[in-house]
Design a protein around this nucleic acid. Sequence first.
DNA 1: AATTAATTAGTGGTTTACCGCTATTTTCTA
DNA 2: TAGAAAATAGCGGTAAACCACTAATTAATT
Lengths: 211, 211
Amino acid sequence: MSLKLAIADDHPIVANGILSILRDVPDITVTDIYNNGHSLLNGIKERQPDVLLLDMQLPDISGPELATTILKNYPQVRILILSSTDVLLMVKKMLKLGCMGYILKDSDDLTILKAIETVQNGGQFLSPVLQQQLVEDMFRTKKTNRKTTTLTRREKEILQLIVHEHTNQEIADKLFLSLHTVENHRISLLHKLEVKNTAGLVKVALETGLV
Amino acid sequence: MSLKLAIADDHPIVANGILSILRDVPDITVTDIYNNGHSLLNGIKERQPDVLLLDMQLPDISGPELATTILKNYPQVRILILSSTDVLLMVKKMLKLGCMGYILKDSDDLTILKAIETVQNGGQFLSPVLQQQLVEDMFRTKKTNRKTTTLTRREKEILQLIVHEHTNQEIADKLFLSLHTVENHRISLLHKLEVKNTAGLVKVALETGLV
DNA sequence: AATTAATTAGTGGTTTACCGCTATTTTCTA
DNA sequence: TAGAAAATAGCGGTAAACCACTAATTAATT
């Protein structure tokens, strides 16, 4: 049984490049080639591939949108993103949506082939460059910590309880404090972290890894 | 100029293991060995090493606490975490605090040596096992997305504005809607995402990568 | 011992969020 | 094209958050 592969990319060069890579691979058949989002959505209604090689920048519909609808209606289709942007945020987003892999267009033939095979076999694939970036990213985020280090022990404690969806009254009860005290701490948190409301508090708390 | 290395670990076996690894390395000198947090804090007052090999589980003071105070008072000290726990959350936390590396105790000699050298030279080092885990982690988190995919376009839009610290009134103005409409959307968000308040909304929004 | 920072608690008030309803219009989809 | 889902708007009301103060007590630090 041969693997059915569909390609969605508006640049013929890319599609042809993939085709030439796969020419000598007997167990992979390219069944469909689409050059925009709408024809992809139409075509996939008729015939679902095993693996879909999806470009992030199709002219009419965005990558995330396409991935969402396809995975919703045809969850068995494994999506492998083929993109030229290495913005880590976008990579994370697509993988969270349920895509099984993300490779860059400047990958060499062997990597692309390996990615397709891995994804088909139920695995997940991430470009080596992106793997490296992921590691670096974890180190890079340390700068955001400056703010939260100026928080006192009590403030951190209360901030954590706020993140856990507790009200001021609940926090007061839990810590055996007056409601007023908790309110005061909360307001000094707002000032110190320079945010406007609860949403801002939760955001910095999560971003700085305080929880 | 030889590299001054300090070791903080309560298991003599580990410390001795490190010593034997470094015996044949001429440009690294182990200046101090501590077996608990307090003696470490005291000793580092007198003499700061270039690199501190810090165990996560010292008997008296926790790893994060130690790293925080040391980096606050002696920022030039490069901390390399030597831990037996590969819990990714803990790894992320320590790196966010500003530690320059994280290796596992079951690493082979060469890896440990490489880690020390890399950190000393201003680089960052992460155990290969953990690098792999990091990649897998990114894929694994996709399950949390089930909830947010059931949100409507408008709900997602409003959720984003909530995360950006806007009030209902501000959102209403921005989207040319009635205040009531925004309130309604907000409440259905609370129900759909099964959270209690704004804090919960922001949390799922950030966790699922909606922003 | 003196100063500073942190923690606690209060008053009084405004604004915003939260909740349960009903109901119309629009848009999507079977 | 009928029915469902989404988006819109309203009512009345409670709970919670937000704000600007003051002020006492308790660590922490110099």
